[in-house]
């Protein structure tokens, strides 16, 4: 390495680290405010005492336990429905010949562009007619048939050699047996990738849940957090930071532990 290359490398490393520090600064600040008494929320002195008091106050201030439960039910029911419905649909598109298949596939892909967020007005009307306003099912239903999942799984299923399917058929597997014994197990990386993307998306989703819920019994964490952080509840940065950290903690922890898996899943999902 010559001198000019070494110089460039040094500049780049410095730039990369500065940017990285800038990128985690908001999170670092949230940790600072959450673990120190309120009077230190805007004063950064190293001798500030540590405390868990903000977490206790935040937990008492809003029904976080209920919000956690709601989000957990929401995220798992969406994922479970997506896995079943989209696996079946993707299998149909990948391995069955039926009239209207191409046009049906194009119609599925429409949802990649016209995401449910855009259609909040009409979907609210539909939910009202179905009597599903203010229910967890009402939050999840528009997302359960995911064009993204169907597309991803179809691409994966298509790469699986047909010989494996024929072998299983000779062994006596029916069509669903083949799907369950051959296609699903061989597509595990795609399922993991989609699962992580789906869970993080719906854990964080806000607009539609905000519209369709109006009680503590159904509200997910994000909506609870928005009410919690509203200026009407008095601006207490330490408590808001503590509440915010609690809301993101499960996902953040999972991400830190399974970092490689997360990054690879997002990559995998984006490449297909």
């Amino acid at each position: 390495m010559n001198a000019s290359e070494r110089f460039f490398r040094a500049v780049e490393t410095t730039g990369a680290w500065l940017l990285a520090l800038l990128w985690i600064a908001p999170l670092l600040y949230a940790f600072w405010a959450a673990f120190h008494p309120s009077e230190y929320a805007v004063r950064f002195v190293l001798t500030a005492p540590l405390t868990l008091d903000n977490f206790v106050r935040a937990w008492d201030f809003a029904p976080f336990a209920r919000y956690f439960l709601n989000t957990f039910i929401l995220v798992t029911s969406i994922l479970a429905a997506q896995l079943v419905l989209c696996t079946l649909a993707a299998y149909a598109f990948a391995r069955f010949e039926f009239p209207g298949r191409e046009i049906a596939f194009l119609l599925v892909l429409v949802q990649l562009m016209i995401v449910p967020e855009i259609l909040i007005v009409e979907n609210y009307g539909t939910m009202a007619r179905l009597g599903l306003v203010d229910s967890i099912l009402g939050i999840g239903l528009p997302y359960m048939a995911s064009a993204f999942a169907i597309f991803l799984l179809r691409q994966t299923f298509k790469t699986i050699p047909r010989e494996l399917e024929e072998a299983a058929r000779i062994e006596g597997c029916g069509r669903l047996g083949v799907l369950w014994r051959v296609y699903v197990p061989l597509s595990k990386p795609t399922y993991v990738a989609f699962g992580l993307v789906s869970v993080s998306h719906h854990w964080n989703n806000f607009l539609w849940p905000l519209i369709i819920t109006n009680s503590v019994e159904t509200r997910p964490l994000t909506v609870g957090l928005a009410i919690f952080g509203a200026p009407e509840s008095g601006v207490d940065w330490s408590m808001i930071s503590a509440g915010t950290l609690m809301a993101v903690a499960p996902l953040l922890l999972a991400f830190l532990i399974f970092q490689r898996q997360f990054v690879q899943s997002f990559m995998h999902a984006g490449l297909k």
């Binding site: 990128w23 985690i24 908001p26 999170l27 600040y29 949230a30 993080s200 854990w203 964080n204 989703n205 806000f206 964490l221 994000t222 957090l225 928005a226 952080g229 808001i240 930071s241 915010t244 809301a247 993101v248 996902l251 953040l252 991400f255 997360f262 997002f266």
Partner: peptide
């Protein structure tokens, strides 16, 4: 990291 944080939480900060 910002990718996996909810926009609402991020906006609070």
């Amino acid at each position: 990291t910002p990718t996996i944080l909810p926009m609402v939480a991020v906006a609070n900060i």
